[in-house]
Simulated scan of single mutants.
Amino acid sequence: MGELILIRHGQTEWSLSGQHAGRTDIPLTEAGKTAARALAPRLARRRPVAVLSSPLSRATRTAELAGLVDVRPDPDLVEWDYGGYEGLTAAQIQETRPGWELWRDGVVPGDAAHPGERLQQVAARTDAVLDRIRPLLADGDVAVVAHGHLARVLATRWVGLDASAARLLGHPHPGTLSFLAVEGGQPVISAWNVP
C-alpha cells in the first residue's frame, strides 16, 4: 500500500504575514517558488500514481514547480473558508474577540465570496477526499497539494480523530511534506512538516 504524501503549498505574502488566506487566490512569493522546486527531487523518487490539488493557484503552481504531472484539481481541497476573517491575522481577530481560537471558536460570516465555513464542513470535505484516495493507495503513493489548516484536518481525519484534534498538530510550514500511511492495519501520521 502506498502513502498519502501531503504537500503544503509554497510561501505566499499572506502566509508570511500570518493572514488567513482561505478562498483568496494569493500567488507564491519567490521563496515559495524556490521551496516548491526543492521538493521535486524527493517527489520524483516517489512517482505518485495520482496527484490531487486544491484549485487555487498557490497549490497548483506548487505542484507544477515540484514536477508533479497529471494534477487533478479537487474543489474539496480548497482551504477553510474563513468568512469575515479572510485576510486578517489572529492578532487582528483577537482585538475584537479576545482569546479567539480558530479550532474552538470558528469564523464569522463574511461577504458573498467568503460566507464562512464551520469546522464540521471542512471535515466533511476532507472525508470525501480520503474516500476517493483510499482505493488509489492500493496502486502506490498519492500526492495531495493543499493548505495549512485543511492539511491538519485531513491528517486528523486520516487517523480517525475528530476534526477538532487538528489543533494538536503543528501548522505545516509552506513548501513542506507530510506522510500519512498505514502500519499494522492502523492509519498513522508517519512524518509531519518535513522540509
Score class of each variant (00 low, 15 high):
S57R: 13
R58G: 00
R58Q: 03
T60D: 04
T60V: 10
T60S: 10
T60N: 02
R61M: 11
R61W: 07
A63H: 00
A63N: 01
A63C: 06
A63M: 02
E64Y: 02
L65V: 01
A66N: 01
G67C: 07
L68Q: 01
D70M: 04
D70N: 14
D70T: 03
V71T: 05
R72P: 00
D74I: 04
D74T: 02
P75Y: 10
D76R: 14
D76Y: 08
L77R: 01
D81V: 03
D81P: 04
Y82G: 00
Y82M: 02
Y82F: 15
G83P: 04
G84W: 01
L88F: 11
L88H: 09
L88E: 11
T89W: 03
T89K: 02
A91W: 08
Q92W: 03
I93Q: 03
I93G: 02
I93K: 00
Q94C: 11
E95C: 14
E95D: 15
R97W: 11
R97I: 05
P98E: 13
P98W: 10
G99Q: 12
W100P: 02
W100H: 15
E101Y: 12
L102S: 07
L102N: 04
W103I: 06
W103A: 10
W103K: 05
R104Q: 13
D105N: 09
G106V: 09
V107P: 01
V107A: 05
V108I: 15
V108F: 07
P109W: 09
D111V: 06
D111A: 10
A112S: 15
A112H: 13
A113K: 15
H114Y: 12
H114C: 05
H114W: 05
P115G: 07
P115L: 06
G116C: 08
E117H: 06
R118W: 13
L119H: 06
L119W: 03
Q120G: 11
Q121G: 14
A123M: 11
A124N: 03
T126I: 06
D127T: 12
A128Q: 11
V129N: 00
L130G: 02
D131H: 13
D131I: 11
R132T: 02
I133F: 06
I133H: 00
P135F: 14
P135S: 14
P135R: 12
L136Y: 05
L136D: 00
L137D: 02
A138S: 13
D139G: 09
